[in-house]
Amino acid sequence: MNTIAALKQGNLLVFNEVYYAWHKRVYYFILQKTRSSFIAEEVTQLTFIKCWNYRENLTEDLNIQLQLFRIARTTLIDFLRKETIYKEKVIHVIDKYTLPVDDLWGKLAEKELQVKLANALKEMPPMRRKVFEMSRFKGMSYQQIAHELSLSSRTVETHIFQAIKQIKHYLGFIISLLAWLCRF
């Protein structure tokens, strides 16, 4: 009696022989495709379960090896498809019901930085503050600022350099703290 005919009749001894003869090969076939021992174990077990459950559908014209690997391949495709759908649903639910942490930290950090920047600007000498605001907030070039305030371009450049240095000094701790928080 051939193997497939015996399987179709529900012969458990033949099924055990097929299982022990092909289990490792099916496992390594799946492992090679996925590089995941967990998926390889799951899909291998599902392959043999399907082989047994649908044994009446096995074709006697094809050898058991070909049919097992066909079952393994389709089982792997189904498994990966279900995993992908599951992950997408989980991500959708998480996105829907949680606050975006990056946005929350970003908004808090932005607000904190605005307050600290305003305080740093208040402590600057009036001309330095005015030059910095014209450059950074109004987007004016050094030449435009120099022309409007009757200063040399070099003086404007010095004011900007000193303003940035003062802001860095004033915000140093905050920037370090934010950089640390952004890691999480």
Rank of each mutant, 00 (worst) to 15 (best):
R70N: 10
Q45E: 03
L104V: 15
T3D: 01
L12T: 14
M127K: 14
C51L: 14
N63D: 15
L108K: 07
L76W: 04
I77A: 10
Q45R: 11
T75C: 08
K122Y: 04
M134L: 11
R129S: 02
Q65R: 13
Y54P: 02
I174R: 01
L117D: 03
L46G: 15
L31Q: 07
V18R: 02
G172V: 01
G106K: 09
L13W: 06
I145Y: 06
G106W: 05
S135A: 15
K87F: 10
I160E: 02
L177Y: 10
A120G: 00
K122D: 14
L178D: 01
K138R: 15
N2F: 03
I164R: 15
R73T: 14
H92Y: 11
E83A: 09
L58K: 07
M140Y: 07
Y86V: 12
Q45L: 02
I85L: 13
R183Y: 00
S36W: 00
E148L: 08
Q114I: 09
F29M: 05
M124A: 05
K24S: 14
E88K: 14
R183D: 12
R35A: 11
W180S: 13
H159C: 09
R154N: 12
I167P: 03
A179P: 01
V14P: 04
I49Q: 09
N2K: 09
G172D: 07
Y27T: 06
I164A: 06
G10K: 00
W180E: 15
G106T: 04
Y54M: 03
M1K: 09
N57H: 10
Q143G: 04
L171P: 00
A40L: 08
S37Q: 08
C51T: 12
P125L: 13
R128K: 14
K111V: 05
P126R: 02
D95L: 01
E148G: 07
R129W: 05
F15N: 07
V131K: 02
R35D: 10
V14Q: 10
E112T: 11
K122R: 14
S135N: 13
V101M: 07
R70I: 09
I91G: 01
E56I: 06
V131E: 00
M1W: 05
N63P: 08
S152F: 08
R136D: 12
K87I: 10
E83L: 09
I167N: 00
V115P: 01
V131A: 07
K82Y: 09
K87Y: 02
I64D: 06
N11R: 03
C51G: 11
C51A: 14
K130S: 12
V26Y: 05
V93H: 11
Q114Y: 04
C51I: 03
P125H: 11
W180G: 10
F173H: 15
P125N: 14
H169A: 10
T34K: 00
R129C: 04
I39R: 03
L108V: 08
I85M: 07
R73I: 08
M134C: 00
V26A: 03
Q143I: 07
Y19C: 02
T98N: 03
P100G: 01
Q9A: 15
I77L: 10
H147I: 02
L66T: 15
E60P: 01
V26E: 03
Y20M: 12
F184G: 05
K168D: 15
R136Q: 13
T155R: 12
E88G: 06
N63W: 00
N2G: 05
E17L: 06
R35M: 09
S36L: 01
S152C: 04
Q143E: 14
R81E: 07
Q9M: 09
T34Q: 06
